[in-house]
């Protein structure tokens, strides 16, 4: 393939990866931004969302779009409920102490993984995209659904931005994020905000999973990658900055895509990962983070 089309393909792939990263990271950016706890089970919420998408769509016959849309509603609701229950039963009792939360969410990770393994099984299963015609370019074909993921990602980021900056819920969340104690003094029910944010973060992860699972597969061990990548995106972007999360996702996605043109795959991964790590080394507060921590 000529260099031009190759670069086009790599850029497209990079953009899709960026969209996937931004989608996945949204929920974590919320939870981590507001609550400042490392939720190791966040990736499992993503996985649960994908597995439930498979389950819901397998119940519906006929046009795959119906099952998909149903999954887009049902899966986040169930995942949100699971998150809410674990927040009330465990995290709240731990007072969101960062260290105890890590252990508890690792425990949660084991439980969710085992339940999915037992009831869903160890196989990777595909979920049919609501539509998926192949776009034929002169040099190669491309999945239309992948482009739809980019659009969905943009929409969801805008929606989140709107909620955070233009609604009362967003104001309350930002206040809690800024300083929980002062927010409490001003009558913000911090305890309930935490519960809501935790559930909302998990639901966003599930939405992302439903949108992404047609281009990946539902598998009980799929949660680790999104977890790590989300953390990377959120921190590189700068804590609490939605804009930063988006820019970081694009930076990581595009660099990963374009570097892969020039090197053998594993070497490209090594270079891309080092590059992103060095960005953080030389800009410790993240791209759009405040100067002081």
């Amino acid at each position: 393939m000529a260099f031009g089309p190759y670069l086009l393909l790599a850029t497209l792939e990079g953009l899709v990866m960026a969209a996937v990263l931004a989608l996945t990271a949204l929920g974590l950016s919320l939870v981590f931004g507001v609550m400042r706890v490392v939720n190791v089970a966040h990736g499992e919420f993503f996985m649960l969302g994908a597995v439930l998408a498979w389950w819901v769509s397998s119940l519906v016959s006929g046009n795959p779009a119906i099952g998909f849309l149903l999954a887009l509603i049902v899966s986040p609701l169930i995942v949100g409920a699971v998150a809410l229950v674990s927040e009330r039963l465990v995290l709240r009792r731990l007072d969101y102490k960062p260290e105890a939360t890590i252990v508890a969410t690792i425990g949660l990770l084991y439980i969710i993984q085992q339940l999915v393994l037992t009831f869903y099984g160890p196989e990777a299963r595909p979920v049919v995209a609501p539509f998926d015609f192949r776009i034929r370019l002169p040099w190669f074909g491309y999945s239309s659904y992948k482009l739809a993921v980019i659009a969905a990602s943009i929409l969801l980021v805008l929606a989140t931005w709107f909620v955070l900056t233009r609604t009362k819920i967003g104001l309350v969340m930002r206040a809690t994020q800024y300083d929980g104690e002062i927010a409490q003094a001003f009558g913000v029910p911090v305890d309930r905000v935490y519960a809501g944010v935790f559930a909302l973060g998990a639901m966003l992860a599930a939405v992302a999973a439903v949108l992404i699972v047609p281009i990946q597969q539902a598998h009980y061990l799929m949660g680790l990658d999104p977890l790590l990548l989300s953390f990377i995106v959120v921190i590189i972007g700068g804590l609490g900055s939605l804009r930063g999360t988006v820019v970081a996702a694009v930076l990581i996605g595009l660099s990963d895509g374009i570097i892969s043109v020039f090197f053998s795959p594993t070497l490209a991964k090594i270079i891309a990962t080092s590059f992103v790590a060095l960005v953080l080394v030389f800009r410790p507060q993240g791209l759009f983070g405040a100067e002081t921590r």
Binding site: M1, L9, E13, F140, S260, V261, P265, T266, K269
Partner: peptide, 16 residues
Amino acid sequence: MLPIPPTETSFTRYFP
């Protein structure tokens, strides 16, 4: 020869 790293979840970029 196209050796793919095990952490990869998307492959299209390597097909060219």
